[in-house]
């Protein structure tokens, strides 16, 4: 289809251009690498993230011929590649989650610990969230975190993971039920300290 002229061309037009002019792909990196780096870091920790992010963009660059140019945003595509590559690091991911559940100390955020006040809130339910995340099948975790952390819509998650929207819906529903079960259980402490009375 013809390209509408507008101030900010979409990802598809840079990818298409990069087929003749590889340099154009740098724009795709500039737009999406920060978000993807944060996402991968949040899941795997800083050590594994650098490699996964570099590989994600190398893979995307090599597959740019196959990109469906009728999709304006490259986000689902890139998150899909990153998700595939994170599959090699499942053990690292689960090991970190289990460590957090066991010790209450999160190996992933230790390096960033002094950055934010969110930490205080997050810490209380962290070990139990970690337990629930570690216990779910990877596909379920993939769908849940793309939706909750990255704000992908259900169709975008479906695109990224190469599954149908119905599958995404059921994966996320099950994942949420798992979280609720884990959080809603026995820990009175967090219910008291976190739940504002007027909520």
């Amino acid at each position: 289809m013809s390209e509408p002229s507008r101030a900010e061309p979409d990802d598809a037009s840079f990818i298409r251009r990069s087929r003749q002019d590889p340099e154009a792909f740098a724009e795709v990196f500039r737009r999406h690498a920060p978000d993807i780096k944060r996402y991968v870091t949040r899941r795997l920790g800083a050590d594994a993230a650098e490699d996964v992010v570099a590989e994600t963009f190398l893979t995307a660059f090599r597959q740019r011929e196959k990109y469906d140019a009728s999709r304006p945003s490259a986000r689902p595509w890139l998150y899909g590649i990153a998700t595939n590559l994170m599959g090699r690091h499942v053990r690292t991911e689960v090991r970190h989650l289990r460590a957090l559940r066991r010790t209450g100390v999160d190996p992933v955020t230790a390096a960033f610990a002094d950055r934010s006040d969110d930490r205080v809130t997050a810490e209380a339910s962290g070990p139990r969230l970690a337990a629930a995340l570690a216990a779910m099948p990877k596909g379920r975790r993939d769908a849940l975190l793309l939706f909750a952390w990255e704000g992908l819509s259900y169709p975008e998650v479906a695109d990224a993971l190469g599954v149908r929207v119905g599958t995404v819906r059921s994966r996320i529903n099950r994942a949420r039920a798992q979280l609720r079960r884990e959080l809603g259980g026995t820990d009175v402490r967090s219910a008291v300290s976190e739940e504002p009375v007027h909520e």
Binding site: P34, D35, K37, R38, T41, R42, D106, V108, T109, F112, A113, R115, S116, D118, R119, T121, A122, S125, G126, L129, L144, A148, W149, R176, L179, R180, L183, E194, E195, P196, E199
Partner: peptide
């Protein structure tokens, strides 16, 4: 605070890199 809000805050201190 429901489970999704808690999940959103989980590891939220990881910064978006420059």
């Amino acid at each position: 605070m429901n489970e999704m809000t808690r999940l959103e805050r989980f590891r939220a201190e990881v910064p978006r890199p420059e």
